[in-house]
Design a binder for these strands. Structure first.
Length: 330
DNA sequence: CACTCGTGGAG
DNA sequence: TCTCCAAGAGT
């Protein structure tokens, strides 16, 4: 694996040249951004982030609102809040250099603690992400479906992890999973571990890993309100916890199984309902948003944001799309 | 353990 | 068009 990694490793902005120790801050930021997020999406966002906040100290000194806005569009917004909270602790107490020490920081789960310990600090930590799960499941042709197979996969990954260069080993496994041992149509003929792969030998490598069936996503309906006054639109701040927590948003009523109409409107005004609606898919439900536009007094509670600068508000994608439809169709 | 928590791209 | 999926964490 290390030989293959040395020859085929992807060149990524958070990686240091071979043999050089990477900046722990950059490794950490990249690992958090890459949680459930593709390399193609992360690459430009990572560059922008480390340009704006080049160090732990810089991030620790940033305001919560600007950090949340900078994360807009990336999803899973608790990551941004935890990143900033952990930066404050690291700035005052120092960067933990062990897996156990990292694991105690907000936003460092089992994967991220192991990855940062191995990649940035050279610890022999067992790094298991979705790539490793897939590669190991195929190597051993594990018939138990995920997530029940996780303990066995972790044990197998432990047995494979070398004492030295555990970080390069982990990155090699992830590069292999991303470029060759892909979920669909794996390129087994290019694979360096094909001779040891039980799934390849079975003739159906893409049957692994087996997965438990997922619950179907229910449909919900809501209404988004565009309240305008003198070139500005009313924005709210979502509660710190929960869906889109801590993010700026357009005012919106409840999201329920049936369309809620004008329930939860931020003002009593003759609302105009637009003929269009906005569809959005979340992890565990689908959402259809009706669009309502009206005139405010300028005294309604919230932030009155310049319509010409809505891009600067850092709206989550669902509200950015609703805002665009409303701005166009109001 | 089961559920919540976003988004964009590949197929 | 629609499903699947991605360097998971928190509760």
């Amino acid at each position: 694996m290390l030989e293959w990694y040395d020859a085929h490793r992807r060149d990524l902005p958070w990686r240091s040249p071979p043999g050089e120790t990477p900046d722990p801050y950059r490794v950490w930021v990249s690992e958090v951004m890459l949680q459930q997020t593709t390399v193609a999406t992360v690459r430009p966002r990572f560059e922008a982030w480390v340009t704006r906040w080049p160090s732990v100290a810089a991030l620790a000194a940033a305001g919560e609102a600007e950090v949340m806005a900078a994360w807009a569009g990336l999803g899973y917004y608790a990551r941004a809040r935890n990143l900033r909270a952990a930066a404050a602790r690291i700035a005052s107490d120092g960067f933990p250099r062990t897996e156990a020490g990292l694991r105690a920081l907000p936003g460092f789960g089992a994967y991220t603690a192991a990855a940062v310990a191995a990649i940035a600090f050279g610890e022999r930590a067992v790094v298991v992400d979705a790539n490793v799960e897939r590669v190991v499941s195929r190597l051993h042709a594990i018939e138990t479906p995920l997530p029940q197979s996780r303990p066995a996969i972790r044990d197998a990954a432990d047995a494979l992890t070398p004492a030295a260069r555990a970080g390069d080993f982990a990155q090699g496994m992830m590069d292999l999973g991303a470029t060759i041992c892909s979920p669909k149509r794996p390129r087994c003929l290019l694979c360096p571990v094909r001779p040891w792969c039980d799934a390849y030998a079975s003739g159906e490598p893409d049957r692994y890993p087996l997965k438990a069936p997922k619950a179907d996503r229910p449909q919900r309906h809501g209404t988004v309100f565009w309240l305008e006054h003198q070139g500005r639109v009313l924005l709210h701040r979502r509660p710190a916890r929960g869906l889109l927590g801590g993010m700026r948003a357009l005012p919106t009523g409840p999201w329920e199984a049936e369309p809620p109409g004008l329930a939860g409107a931020p003002a009593e005004t003759p609302w105009r309902l637009l003929p269009d609606s906005v569809e959005h898919g979340f992890t565990h439900f689908r959402l259809t948003l009706a669009l309502a536009a009206g005139e405010g007094t300028g005294h309604e509670a919230g932030e009155w944001w310049p319509i010409d600068d809505l891009a600067g508000a850092g709206l989550p994608t669902v509200f950015a799309r609703a805002a665009e439809a409303l701005r166009r169709g109001r």
